[in-house]
Amino acid sequence: MSIQHFRVALIPFFAAFCLPVFAHPETLVKVKDAEDQLGARVGYIELDLNSGKILESFRPEERFPMMSTFKVLLCGAVLSRVDAGQEQLGRRIHYSQNDLVEYSPVTEKHLTDGMTVRELCSAAITMSDNTAANLLLTTIGGPKELTAFLHNMGDHVTRLDRWEPELNEAIPNDERDTTMPAAMATTLRKLLTGELLTLASRQQLIDWMEADKVAGPLLRSALPAGWFIADKSGAGERGSRGIIAALGPDGKPSRIVVIYTTGSQATMDERNRQIAEIGASLIKHW
């Protein structure tokens, strides 16, 4: 067993022997301040990774656009098919120029040779490549099948209805392509620590998230040296922004954090800054 596999296998073990965790309302004060600064709703939840206990939450059962955070769930569904012998990570998928959609920095470079399922998941999570996500959605049967996968996990809230990039439209009061912070946090925890996926697939999923290259201005910008984070960000229309993450000190994750916002007129930089400040408060009061 590799060191990384050992780390993920012992996530519940280490967490069980940690000192009790206590909620700190100071972080919620910052979440509410972010709402004021952005002029928009902000949803927040913080779960203990081992027990699933909610440590703090704000608007945990209000719907927010998922945006690209759905790509972690998508690759979880792909990995479940791999575990069941219905898919192979090494299978190569070929596609054409007509398949390319807006923001496809990886797939646009491989029109000639195609990409493997493993490479597509890596591109979808680490670079948020939209064509990679659409190609992977095709392998599982489309958005409705991802929703069905989530329902089978016990998540009857999260739903995907459309493809990239239309799913980022974020129309107010439109339930399409949305989740709730509580539902997303619980589902992410199941994917990373539950028995739904094999140990190898859980490790692969967290490795992809740990290698995320496009979430630097968010929670990662607030992390002290030595902290662990595996995350996936999302951005959408109407001032929408979000991030889902597993993080913790001492090089291992111990909490799940989900943050979503929508309806702001603020710039992307300002949305990023507010999420980073929430992260800084979380870490300060850990």
Rank of each mutant, 00 (worst) to 15 (best):
A124N: 04
Q274S: 12
Q265T: 14
I278Q: 01
S128T: 04
F149H: 08
Q88C: 10
S80E: 15
T107H: 01
D113G: 11
D207G: 14
H94K: 12
T261K: 07
E237M: 14
S104L: 01
A200G: 15
I259V: 12
I278A: 03
I54K: 07
G251M: 13
P165S: 07
I93A: 05
E46L: 11
V106T: 10
A222S: 11
S281A: 13
A132M: 01
N152S: 13
L282N: 04
A77L: 11
A123K: 04
E145K: 14
L247K: 03
T131A: 11
A200W: 08
T112I: 15
G234V: 03
A132T: 04
Q265N: 14
T186K: 15
E35Q: 08
T187Y: 02
T193F: 13
L218D: 04
Q203Y: 09
L146D: 02
G39V: 10
H151P: 04
R189L: 14
T179L: 03
D231Y: 04
G154L: 05
A215L: 00
Q37N: 13
R176V: 06
E61F: 14
R189P: 04
E175G: 09
W208F: 07
E26C: 10
K30R: 15
K30I: 10
T187H: 05
E166D: 13
G76P: 00
V258S: 06
L160D: 02
G90N: 14
P25R: 14
L247R: 02
G52L: 05
M209N: 01
Q203T: 10
R118F: 13
Q97A: 14
P65H: 04
E145H: 13
K144S: 12
R92I: 14
D207P: 01
V72S: 07
L188C: 08
Q265K: 15
E35R: 00
L49F: 10
R189Y: 13
Q37A: 14
M153L: 11
E195T: 13
R241E: 03
E175I: 14
G114N: 05
S281T: 13
A276M: 11
M127V: 14
I278C: 02
K284Q: 11
Q203C: 09
T131Q: 00
A183W: 08
K284T: 11
S68P: 01
T193A: 13
L282H: 00
P143M: 03
L247W: 07
R41G: 05
L47E: 06
K213D: 06
H110D: 05
E56A: 10
